[in-house]
Design a protein around this nucleic acid. Sequence first.
DNA 1: GTTCTATACGAACGGCGTTCGTGTCAAGCC
DNA 2: GGCTTGACACGAACGCCGTTCGTATAGAAC
Lengths: 228, 228
Amino acid sequence: MPTRPSPARRATRARTLSREGIVDAALKIIDAEGLDALTMRTVAHTLGTGQASLYAHVAHKEDLLELVIERVIGECDFDIRPDPERWQEQVKQAMREMRAVFGRHGDLARASFARIPLGENALRGSETMIGVLRAGGLPDRVIAFACDLLPLYAMAIAYEESLYSFEGATEADFDAFVGSMRSYFQNLPGDRFPHLVALAGLLTEGDNNERFEFGLEVLVRGLAAMAR
Amino acid sequence: MPTRPSPARRATRARTLSREGIVDAALKIIDAEGLDALTMRTVAHTLGTGQASLYAHVAHKEDLLELVIERVIGECDFDIRPDPERWQEQVKQAMREMRAVFGRHGDLARASFARIPLGENALRGSETMIGVLRAGGLPDRVIAFACDLLPLYAMAIAYEESLYSFEGATEADFDAFVGSMRSYFQNLPGDRFPHLVALAGLLTEGDNNERFEFGLEVLVRGLAAMAR
DNA sequence: GTTCTATACGAACGGCGTTCGTGTCAAGCC
DNA sequence: GGCTTGACACGAACGCCGTTCGTATAGAAC
């Protein structure tokens, strides 16, 4: 039983690992099998190497996740030229982009929750957002707050959507999920939870797009109301 | 070396475990050492028993966490009689309560993020919130959305605050954290990130209370703007 | 050709959530 | 009062996880 590694196998694939390649592999795993399947072991296996090798390029898993998120933020098109007349629409445009891009990457949005992204791409995004809001004439205090709240909203919705659109993403599964939720609310004791029973339908509304746009509208109007 | 358990030790403390007691112990651990210290092992050890014993009362760790969150929501005072004239203030009151209560329980707010609480206490909270918003004359569609967004905001702020107010919660630690953040933004290349550099101060503003109230105001005004 | 440094990698460590099998006790029944 | 039974306590183990250690090696520097 050889406890020593075989030199032959090693020679075939040395010096091939890279930070970029590791992030690639990680993202591929998340896309295909979700965040929970992302393991230093699965990443290493995808790359045909051992787990320990990853640590030469990445400090820890948290670090890797940060890189993945930064990469995905980089996929967002934030190429927006601030226009004072259209700031509200431009804010919405940026948030739609975030939601759409993260929506394409499984439940990665979940990992973005309790994290302050400070990479190059994230900073460019923030910079753009601030530019748009400043062009809109909002006070800087309002802007500083909006920079937290707006992405929080977009990510929350993206994650919520990823909950039932996964793998066997048949429309039937989706309907089943929404339906069970709705009937749960509907069948609550009506004397103690009259409002919840009444709103059961709306609380589990099917059209995600409409819901998202609706929330966006609320947020933007709230910000606009703070302009004076 | 006895591999058999000693009957004496067992007799002293049989039949003492309970769901409530387990939740108590878990919450105590979170309060004292944070969410990461919450382990089936630490809970069992606190109760002077083995980990396997917990599974007679709790399905899995996720289940336990849900119970803990439900318990803490129960600590919130949602005893609000909806008043059409004061709905905005009442919404704020409820959110202040959530933030304050979760703020008293370490970083538990982090666990509440990607979770839809459906326990008795959570439902009572939602019911109250809907009652207040309906009294305020908001359309049901707006209300259904607000029921997601408002608690999300309160929890996000509660978690953010727990990040730097922990254990050695000296004011110096806090200032150090905020300060390093601020100087990070301030020292970004000014030609590429002019807005971020300019807003470095506001983005890392110290007075959490003011910030929280500010966001609350934005949200409530946005909701009010959707009344017509 | 030798030395040095970066990195690939097998193996192991400690810790996690969870399960298994066994043991034990209290209550119900005759 | 003895016997059965079922709920629960619990030690041990399983299969994961993130991470570290020691060693081997390839290519650059000299």
